[in-house]
Amino acid sequence: MALLRRLPVWVVYLLGALPAPYLFYLGLTGGLGVEPIEALEHEYGLIALQCLIAGLAITPLRRHLGVNLLKFRRALGLLAFLYLVLHLAVWAVLDVQMLSAVWADILKRPYITVGMAGFLLLLPLALTSNNLSVRRLGPRWRRLHRLVYPAVLLGALHFVMLRKGLQIEPLLYFAAVAGLLALRIPVRAGAREGRRGRAPQS
C-alpha cells in the first residue's frame, strides 16, 4: 500500500486512459466480437462505473482501514468522466445514429433518463476538478462534490435497468455502490454533530 501511494498521479491518468484508444482499436479490428458497437459502449460505461466506485472507496479506506489514497481521487473522478463522455459518444454517434432518436430516447426510456441524469450531475464536478475551483469555491466545493453520491447511484441503477431480466453482474455493482454509500451514513452524521459542536467557536 505504501508502494501504491508513492505512485505519481500522472501514472494513474496514463494507465487509466490507455484502455480508451485500445478498446476502440479492438472494436475496429474485430477484437470485440461481431457486435463491436454494443461491446465498446458497454466497456466504456463499465470502466466509468468502476472508476466511480474506486473513487467512492477512497474515503472509507482512509477512515476504516487507515489507507490514504486521497491523492488519486481526482484522477479517478476525471477518468470516470472521460469514459462517460466516450460511452455517451459511442451510444449517440455509433449506436443510435440519429440526433432526434437520441433526444427521444433520453425522454422516453427510463434507463437512459436515469443514466443521463447521472451524467449531468457529474458535469459540474468534472468542470470544478481543478485547484483553482477548489480555492475559489471553498466550502461550497465540498458540498457541490457530494453530487457524486446520487450520480453513482443513478449510474448503477442505469446498469441494473438496461439488462434483460435481473442479472447478477449489475446487481453486484449496485450493491457495491450502496455499500460504499452506506458506510458514509453514520460517519457523516457524526461529522455533522462535530461541526455543530465547533460552531460556537468560529
Binding site: F24, G27, L28, V34, E35, P36, I37, L40, L94, D95, V96, Q97
Partner: peptide, 12 residues
C-alpha cells in the same frame, strides 16, 4: 435494427 457483422460504423 443493427445487422450483426457491419463493424464499428454499421448503419442501422
Amino acid at each position: 435494427e443493427r445487422e450483426i457483422g457491419g463493424g464499428l460504423f454499421s448503419k442501422r
